[in-house]
């Protein structure tokens, strides 16, 4: 099942490490195994089996989100909801402040016989700005947290091969310590039926 060097496609981790100095500055250079599947269920099973067998699953790359994979990987829940809530709160405060300040304080205006501080007419703008701020906070939160920004170049170095945006599901296993047993790893893999296994190096 494990392929020979000649069969391997282009290196799965294309820009692994540029030189040794970089490696010592930012972390340790570690060996990674990219185990590819063609089906989300097998991927999920593989993650569970590998983790149960004591291997460290660094990440899973997939063309679409797999249900239940966060739990299988043991990832903590996202806190984006809180970000959005705080954004919305800020929007409401800004909207309210803006309207009260311009209409009732800086230049009090009586329009249509309503008091300068008439609250009902503030509902629409306050609502819109609440939603606007919450939405912007959500997107900025997502992009900042995952460092997503327009960049020049090709595929990001963290992505194991081009297939994971098409039809490949890749489980990345990291060799964290010397206790990593290739034989045991191969034994576990042989029960999981991956379509392809490749390896590479990356600084983690």
């Amino acid at each position: 099942m494990r392929r020979t060097e000649a069969d391997l496609p282009a290196a799965p981790f294309p820009v692994a490490v540029r030189d040794e100095r970089e490696a010592t500055r930012e972390g340790t250079r570690r060996r990674l195994h990219a185990v590819a599947f063609d089906d989300p269920h097998r991927t999920l099973e593989a993650v569970r089996a590998l983790r149960a067998a004591g291997f460290e699953v660094h990440d899973v790359h997939a063309p679409f989100p797999i249900h239940g994979i966060e739990e299988a990987l043991g990832l903590p829940p996202s806190r984006l909801g809180r970000t959005a809530f705080l954004g919305g709160l800020a929007g409401a405060v800004v909207a309210f402040g803006l309207q009260v300040w311009t209409h009732a304080y800086d230049w009090p205006l009586v329009i249509g016989g309503k008091s300068p501080l008439a609250l009902p007419s503030q509902v629409p703008v306050s609502f819109e700005l609440t939603v606007l701020f919450a939405a912007v906070a959500t997107v900025v939160g997502l992009l900042a947290r995952r460092r997503l920004f327009p960049r020049v170049g090709h595929r990001p170095p963290t992505q194991p091969g081009p297939g994971v945006t098409d039809d490949r599901f890749v489980v990345v296993v990291v060799e964290r310590d010397a206790g990593f047993s290739s034989a045991r790893f191969d034994a576990v893999l042989s029960r999981l039926h991956p379509v392809e296994v490749t390896e590479g190096w990356r600084v983690l």
């Binding site: 790359h61 063309p63 994979i69 990987l73 996202s78 947290r145 995952r146 595929r155 945006t165």
Partner: peptide
């Protein structure tokens, strides 16, 4: 245009939430 998307589960998780 793809903002350095790497299809990682950590990204997908937040992406779905967003």
């Amino acid at each position: 245009l793809s903002f350095g998307w790497d299809a990682s589960t950590r990204t997908w998780q937040r992406y779905e939430k967003a």
